[in-house]
Amino acid sequence: MSTVPPEAERLLESEPLMAHLATCVEGRPHVAPVWYRYAEGVVEVVTTGRKLANIERNPRVALSIQKDDDGRTRWMVSLLGTATVIEDEAETDAARRRINEKYDAEPNAYDENTLVRIDVGSATYRTY
């Protein structure tokens, strides 16, 4: 069962917004924008580079997603979770297609990236 409240789930699934993924490097936060897909308490991202290396060393992560209209915040969701790097190429390809479809990107965009699944441990949200 998801720890994400139903209203927050609806917000996360509503539209292709940018998430900010926070990982840890040398005891400090590293935050970077990512595309994501949320379903049933799990967030999928496909990534590479520093974010992936950080997750491999420390799987505890946070995500922040916010909807703005003309500079005015409409809602925000913060998620804390544990990330797992998925090495299976078929799973990665399927996740990449789902994420690229959500963001209206080419089906093979970012084909060098690796799938990371984040099991959400806790969530907070607010609407304005």
Rank of each mutant, 00 (worst) to 15 (best):
R117Y: 12
L115P: 07
I118Y: 04
E40H: 12
D119K: 15
N108G: 09
A109I: 03
A62L: 05
G49R: 11
T48C: 11
N54L: 12
N108T: 09
N108L: 06
D93G: 12
E56Q: 15
A105L: 14
K51G: 01
T114E: 05
V77K: 00
D93N: 14
R98S: 12
S78K: 02
A53T: 11
K51A: 08
D111C: 04
E112P: 08
D88V: 12
S64V: 06
V77H: 00
L115M: 12
L115C: 09
E106S: 06
E44S: 12
N113E: 15
E112T: 07
I55S: 02
G41F: 05
E112D: 13
R74Q: 12
A90S: 14
P107Y: 02
K51H: 08
A105T: 03
L63N: 03
V43N: 10
L63P: 07
E87L: 15
L63F: 02
A53I: 08
E106A: 08
T114A: 09
A109Y: 07
R117W: 13
G71H: 00
K67I: 00
K102E: 07
V85A: 04
K51E: 10
D68W: 04
A105E: 10
A83K: 01
G49S: 06
Q66Y: 01
R57D: 14
I65W: 00
R96E: 10
Q66L: 07
A105Q: 13
S78F: 01
R96Q: 10
K102T: 11
I55L: 12
I86R: 14
P107Q: 02
R98D: 13
R97A: 13
P107T: 01
N108C: 04
V43H: 07
V46A: 04
K67S: 05
D111M: 03
D119N: 15
E87P: 15
R97T: 11
N100D: 07
Y103C: 02
G71L: 00
D68N: 07
L80W: 14
D70H: 04
N58M: 05
N100Q: 09
R60E: 15
N100S: 05
Y103N: 04
K102A: 06
L115N: 04
K51C: 03
A83S: 07
V85I: 07
A109P: 06
M76V: 05
N108V: 04
V45W: 01
K102P: 10
T82V: 13
L52V: 03
N58C: 11
